[in-house]
């Protein structure tokens, strides 16, 4: 492995390869196979999908080792897995297992309420959630090779994903109209690293790919995220909590490719069986909002 810069390039490189794709949450090898056959670009191995974590409660942790291995053995596409925020050792274990990407995720119960993992120390790339530009740049500062907007996992309600995508976009646009003299004050206000603030101001985008997550349940939801600038989507409960997971997975995969063609989206969505039922995000208490975890 070459220098640190090359190491970061290959991490971001894998994120580049996942663009225009769908990353599906799976809890068994069987589901992973369904995801791969449907055209998913990657799978996310976890113990329970977010909708079940909400209902069942309890501490949500990294998936069982046997489960991750079983999933790695049955698909050829990249396998991601989630760790609790700040759980350095779960991260080290997933790296030892050679998962392809680690999601330091608010969907699991946080292990550290102050600190996230210092991700530059790892060879495996990380993706982290964010609600706005400041949070995105803090995670990138720690070494995240991909950002995903958090949305509200397990809700089936797209409203939070939209809020977070819009906030990130607005944050990027705002930086581009500030002059150099204003950037330090803005960095202070965003609580974000100055160098990254300046990079965004100069380049009019995040330095790593930006995907969307949290609440995507239909091909139209996936299309909306792409319209708002997401470069790919994560789908959690939206597929395997729907009435016909293989059919819905295929439809969402196609929607992410053909999102600019409304007639095509009509065709893709026609005859789909029932989506997941969902919870209205605005009815959740602040305690129940997974997106409030992490900072």
């Amino acid at each position: 492995m070459g220098n640190g810069e090359d190491r970061f390039r290959v991490k971001v490189g894998l994120a580049e390869m996942l663009k225009g794709g769908v990353i599906l949450d799976v809890t068994t090898a069987e589901q992973a196979k369904i995801a791969e056959d449907a055209g998913a670009a990657a799978v996310m191995a976890l113990e329970r999908v977010p909708a079940d974590i909400r209902v069942q409660g309890g501490v949500a942790r990294m998936a069982a080792i046997e489960k991750i291995v079983e999933i790695q053995e049955c698909v050829s596409i990249p396998v991601m897995a989630k760790i609790r925020i700040g759980h350095i050792v779960e991260a080290q274990m997933l790296q030892a297992l050679e998962v392809d990407f680690i999601d330091e995720s608010e969907v699991l119960t946080p292990a550290d309420e102050e600190n996230h993992v210092y991700k530059h120390d790892f060879t495996v790339p990380f993706v982290c959630g964010c609600r706005n530009i400041g949070e995105a740049l803090r995670r990138i500062g720690e070494g995240a090779a991909m950002i995903r907007t958090k949305g509200e996992a397990g809700s089936g309600d797209i409203v939070e994903a939209v809020r977070h995508l819009r906030a990130v976009n607005r944050g990027i646009k705002t930086l581009t109209i500030l002059d150099d003299h204003e950037l330090m004050a803005e960095a202070k206000q965003l609580e974000a690293p100055f160098d990254l603030v300046r990079w965004v101001a100069q380049n009019d985008r995040l330095p790593v790919p930006n995907f969307a997550a949290g609440g995507i349940a239909t091909p139209a939801d996936a299309g909306l995220c792409m319209t708002l600038g997401a470069e790919a989507v994560f789908v959690g409960s939206g597929v395997f909590k729907s009435e016909d997971p293989p059919q819905r997975a295929r439809a969402i995969v196609e929607a992410v490719t053909h999102w600019q063609d409304p007639a095509r989206l009509v065709e893709i969505s026609r005859g789909l069986r029932e989506p997941m039922s969902g919870l209205e995000a605005s009815k959740l208490t602040s305690e129940e909002m997974l997106s409030r975890r992490g900072w």
Partner: peptide
């Protein structure tokens, strides 16, 4: 381009 061949193949057949 680069990406996932299984995903591309699936979309090409469609």
């Amino acid at each position: 381009p680069g990406g996932e061949s299984t995903a591309m193949l699936r979309l090409m057949e469609e």
